[in-house]
Amino acid sequence: MAKYVPETLQKGDLLPPEIQALVDEKKKKRSYAYNARSSPYSLLWTIILSIISVVYVVPIILVIINSFKKKAYVARNPFEIPTGKMFVGLENYKSGIEKIGFFSAFGNSLIITVGSVFVIILCCSMAGWYITRVSSIFTKAFYYLCVFSMIVPFQMVMYTLSKTADSLHLGNPIGIIVVYLGFGAGLAVFMFCGFAKSIPLEIEEAAMIDGCNPIQTYFQVVMPILKPTAISVAILEAMWIWNDYLLPSLVLDKTKYKTIPIAIQYLKGGYGSVDMGAMMAMLVLAIIPIIIFYAFSQKYIIDGVVAGAVKG
């Protein structure tokens, strides 16, 4: 146990022994409670958490292992390492990519996700700011409808939305952005409104006195302030849109355009017997971009989720 050194005393100063004993005891208690690294359980917890972590990663490792296995063996021996005649190299990847047109699906997913998130951020931040500053019955009604739309499950509008989108010819990767803006507006407008309320009016008034019109004020003053919220909204909407299956599968013209989830489901639904090898390879290709993205923007993703949860 290190010697207790109060700030007012110099190192080496001695305390009366009875006080020193009290201080030592107190210090021992504190360190026991606050610094779990010194607690005897710390190592145990680290080991337990490490084991859970391994269990957590195993499903993904398993898919990667099976993606190199001959398709007949995937369903029968999923837990074995592919060796000898089981190992097929990249064959599963080749056949999978060909069967579902993986790269065009990837391109569609990318266009739809990036396009929709960009449009949602731009339009909804403007709308959120407008709603907060111009408060009328109309804007209030719009705000509450947005909040309401967050609760309504997709099944409620599933059929009618696909028909509406169809009649407006929105069944392509660009048109679907309008649908995503409409259906994703609830969360985005809600979060931007919540944050725009906290921007002091004085900042905007100062910009106005300096001769900014509302458009300049928005882009030069308001938007930079809204940036943290914009990142949170972007993360939440991107996670939803990239992985969404049902909405694009109903809205898009599936013979021409597939997204990654649709393509993977197609591998299962389109053929009588599923090619498990190709399935595993495509699952790996679907996961890899997400993991790379996660590795680079982990902090933003986790902060975005916390912000979204607390406000939502």
């Binding site: 339009c123 403007m126 739309s149 309504v152 509008v157 509406t164 309008v178 649908v179 803006l181 409409g182």
Partner: peptide
Amino acid sequence: TFIAFIIGF
């Protein structure tokens, strides 16, 4: 946003 919201919701 309003138009898209009408179409989409």
